[in-house]
Structures are given as C-alpha cells and as structure tokens.
Design a protein around this nucleic acid. Structure first.
Lengths: 150, 150
DNA sequence: TGTTAGTTGCAACTCAGTCGCAACTGAAAT
DNA sequence: ATTTCAGTTGCGACTGAGTTGCAACTAACA
C-alpha cells in the first residue's frame, strides 16, 4: 500500500472550512467516515457508518455531500471495474494519484503509484493540449496469487 | 482520431462465429450497430438503432448481448467521467487501447493512443506481478478550445 | 424434419441516485 | 443573547439503468 499517510485526521474538515463550506452535524459525521475509512466505501456503506455517528443522516444527504466533496476535488470516485455491481466507490484524495487494480478472480483491489503514470498525464497535457484535472486508471486482470491458479 | 480502421465491417460477427457463439437475428442487428457506430453509444441508443434493423429487439436482449461481448473482450465499457449521468458507454475494441479525455466544460470526448500507456501497463505487469487483461484510463479536464475560455 | 440447448420478449422487479418542498440550522450581523 | 436568512436537511415520491423468471421460440446440427 504505497500511500503516505501525511495528513492528520480532521484535515478534510479543515479543507472545507478553508473553502467557506458550512459545517453541519451530518456533514461532520460523513467527513469523519471518509476520513477514517480504511478503504473504498460505496454510498450505502458510508450511510450505514455515518448513521452510527449521527442517526439522523439521510441517504440523500450522503449523496449530496459526496457530490460536494467530489466537486471540491477532495474525494475520488471509482468503479473498481464493476466487480461487484454497478455502484461507485469513494476514497479520500491524498497525495499522488494511484492506479487501481482489480483481480477478476478473487476480487482483491490493489493500488500502485507510478512515475510513469505522472509522465503519461504530462504527455497528455503537452501532446493533446488538454488540461488534466481528474484521472482514473483502473485495470482488471489477475493478481499474483491468482495468476498461478489460472 | 488515431484509431486505425484495420478491420473490415462484419469482423465482429466473424469473431463470434469463431468462438461458436450462436448467431440470432437480434444479435446480428446489435452487432451491426456496434460495428458501424461512429462512437460511444449507451445501451438505450444501441437499442434504438438496433430496433431500426430488427424491431423485435428488446431492451433485455441488448443488455444480455453487451454483457456477452464484454465477456468475450470484443467491446469496452466506458463511463466517460459520468459527464452525462450514471450510464455506461460501449465501443468496439479494435487495435490498441486508448485513453479517453472528457472535457468538463464542452463535453467533447477525445481519444489518444500512447506508447507511454503501453509502457505503464507493462510496468504494472512487471512490478505488481499482475496480469493485465482490461484497462481503462479516463481523464477529465479542459480541452484545447475550452482552456482559454476558463 | 425432428430435436434440443440456447436465446428471446415480456413484465415485473431491484437498486442507485435524484428532486421538490417544507422545516430546520449554522454562522454572521446586530 | 437574539435575530436573520441563505444554505442545508429529511422525507417521500420519483426516475432510469440494469436484472430476472418464465413460457415461447429458434438456430444449429443430426
């Protein structure tokens, strides 16, 4: 897991404050869930966890808050190759972008940070005259453990 | 559009025949739509076009056929950064993988073939011991025309 | 021409995500 | 502290994508 945990918990709320986003009890609960999530929650999982912190949190508030955080560039939305249905997954954006690899056999999700990826994005900026704001690279295949077995 | 049109129309049906997939009138209609599509259709657009060739085609048959083609690796599924809703888009897989760039302002989709992308996938195979079967790189940002205006 | 496994249309369903609205509330001004 | 009000919330109804069970159909092959 090559993700440097450079930021202290609570950083997400700080970001919102900096940007003048009104902080409510419900948002605090949802942010706290995103902050402490070990990984890749979908909207209904986020709702369930947020309800434990504040039972008043509603499904639509979760969606609205996720949309807000996405617009602010504070979280990333993932599909994880639709391994488990059509839904979306969310994760805090911290540090550098990373690639998601989904094993089509065991379902495990791995992450990978690569300079090549950064170079590729730079190439797109240069050669396509395209300003890159968000990028998502998802790979489906077989992980090390499942390669042998298939 | 750096996509070499190396294959003659009808190639998709030939692929299915090679693999012993039963060919029905409905599938022929859907394949023909995919074959001749200039670009990026979603399921309901495919249904509409297929109905013109064979009015009996049903929505569920479109979904079933798309799933089949996806499993066979003959088409790719895209999200195009969810620029227009949550649905999925499909395109024939031909030649090399390419990157999709979606302009967040004007909605235009551009494609880009890059050796860097191929190298990156090779790096994943090597460094992560991960067998790459499908890959999807989608980028959101501003295209050349919209960069100035924003 | 008969046989049958695979495919289809249909209708009913599930599930993610959205929306309109009245009630509520955070935070800034008094 | 109290007032004020734009921004936010819960609710319930809705939309639209995609799925499923099943009886009827058909492509492919003997």
């Amino acid at each position: 897991m090559p993700l440097p945990q450079t930021e202290a918990p609570g950083r997400l709320q700080a970001h919102c404050a900096e940007r003048g986003i009104r902080m409510t009890q419900q948002r605090r609960a949802i942010l706290s869930v995103m902050e402490t999530a070990s990984k890749h929650l979908d909207a209904s999982q986020i709702l369930r966890k947020a309800k434990k912190l504040d039972p008043s949190v509603d499904r639509s508030t979760v969606y609205r808050t996720l949309r807000l955080l996405k617009r602010q560039g504070l979280i990333d939305e993932l599909d994880l190759m639709h391994l488990k249905g059509e839904g979306h997954y969310y994760e805090r954006k911290l540090g550098r972008d990373h690639i998601h690899m989904a094993c089509l056999r065991c379902g495990k999700i791995a992450e990978f940070v690569s300079d090549e990826f950064e170079k590729l994005k730079q190439q797109v900026e240069r050669d396509c005259r395209f300003r890159v704001l968000i990028s998502r690279l998802e790979i489906g295949g077989y992980c090390g453990a499942c390669r042998g077995a298939h």
